[in-house]
């Protein structure tokens, strides 16, 4: 028990250091491309870390988290577009290119949208929950597709990356460091949630919701809070992703994206603190290196996923650190 715990801590620290060291070195050697690759990994890991709260701790297989990823992205894109045209943004409020404000808008929007989606979806479970979350995300996807004011299916460019006080976000490395800090904060929050009373109730509801009701805790309430927090973290990742690509389009809202987030978590290890990070690393590196060799790289991804599901349920981190244990 102690040994596997220590192994996981070492594995986590190694992953965290690698993800920091590679872009630092790449930047020093004048290879900004690898900084951007690491930023992509970091943002996808952040999005998946959000989903990991619902999926990993709560056992809630949301197949609609792209909705929050995309909403976060559109929050950044729409505000940047208005600021670029020097127009007010909403209710006469000035638009801004300040990332902290944009992030706040993205997070709050996702929380407000996740509340009714969660409240309705969580009345169901199993495959119905999966389908209903998918249905909500698809509705938002089609809405974005057919709303010409913000680009419709062509998407919306962000001509100049949004700003952060005291940081030159136009440079790859400072922008990476911002994303990396956000990821670390999200992981710290995940860790804190998992070990807290709330986390105990949430994880117990995943294991046996009858037991949780019988001690007097309503599983629905606990799950709803988890779903909303989860959506807010994924929404923040969406805002960063839009700024990374300087572009946001309905593809961020599509069900492929929802599936990709689930795949990242399964690859890395469901419910593991660094599962989303390990999964995002593997995914993006496969995409980059195999994707350069063959267009059919997803075939290899499929095989790896198959192997994980059949032989290594704990994902990459499970293989390194062994089975997860609870106190």
């Amino acid at each position: 028990m102690k040994a596997t715990g220590a192994r996981e801590i070492i594995a986590n620290a190694t992953i965290a250091l690698l993800l920091l060291a590679v872009p630092l070195a790449a930047s020093a050697m004048g290879e900004p491309f690898y900084v951007t690759l690491a930023t992509r990994i970091t943002i996808l890991a952040l999005a998946a870390a959000g989903l990991n709260i619902a999926l990993g701790l709560g056992g809630l297989v949301s197949f609609g988290h792209a909705a929050f990823f995309g909403l976060g992205g559109y929050a950044a894109g729409i505000m940047a577009a208005h600021a670029f045209n020097a127009e007010p943004f909403f209710l006469g409020l000035d638009s801004t290119t300040s990332m902290p404000v944009i992030w706040l808008v993205a997070i709050v929007t996702c929380g407000l949208v996740a509340l009714p989606i969660g409240a309705i979806s969580l009345r169901t479970s199993g495959v119905y929950f999966i389908m209903i979350t998918l249905a909500f995300a698809q509705m938002i996807y089609y809405f974005a597709n057919s709303w010409p004011a913000y680009g419709g299916q062509d998407g919306l460019p962000i001509f100049i990356r949004n700003t952060f006080p005291g940081v030159n976000t136009a440079q790859p490395l400072p922008f990476f460091l911002l994303c990396y800090a956000a990821l670390l904060l999200a992981l710290l929050m995940f860790w804190s949630l998992r070990n807290s009373r709330f986390g105990a109730a949430l994880q117990a509801a995943r294991q046996n919701s009858v037991r949780v009701s019988a001690v007097g805790i309503a599983p629905f309430n606990v799950r709803l809070v988890a779903f909303v927090i989860s959506a807010m973290v994924t929404g923040l990742a969406g805002a960063l992703f839009a700024d990374l690509n300087r572009f946001v389009s309905p593809s961020m809202l599509s069900w492929h994206m929802s599936g990709e987030l689930i795949v990242l978590i399964v690859l890395g290890g469901i419910g593991r603190l660094f599962g989303p990070v390990a999964g995002a690393m593997l995914f993006v590196l496969l995409e980059h290196f195999l994707g350069g060799v063959t267009e059919r790289w997803q075939l290899f991804l499929g095989l790896i996923l198959l192997g994980v599901v059949l032989f290594a349920r704990g994902g990459l981190l499970g293989m390194i650190a062994g089975k997860a244990r609870h106190g």
């Binding site: 804190s192 986390g199 109730a201 294991q207 046996n208």
Partner: peptide, 30 residues
């Protein structure tokens, strides 16, 4: 009907926490 992955202790702690009515606390490690 138990939380199977949790230890015996954590199963009972869940009930103690429910009795205290504090299941939305998100900071202190249990």
């Amino acid at each position: 009907s138990l939380a199977q992955e949790f230890s015996a202790l954590r199963n009972v702690m869940l009930a103690v926490q429910a009795k205290q009515g504090s299941s939305l606390r998100v900071f202190r490690p249990v």
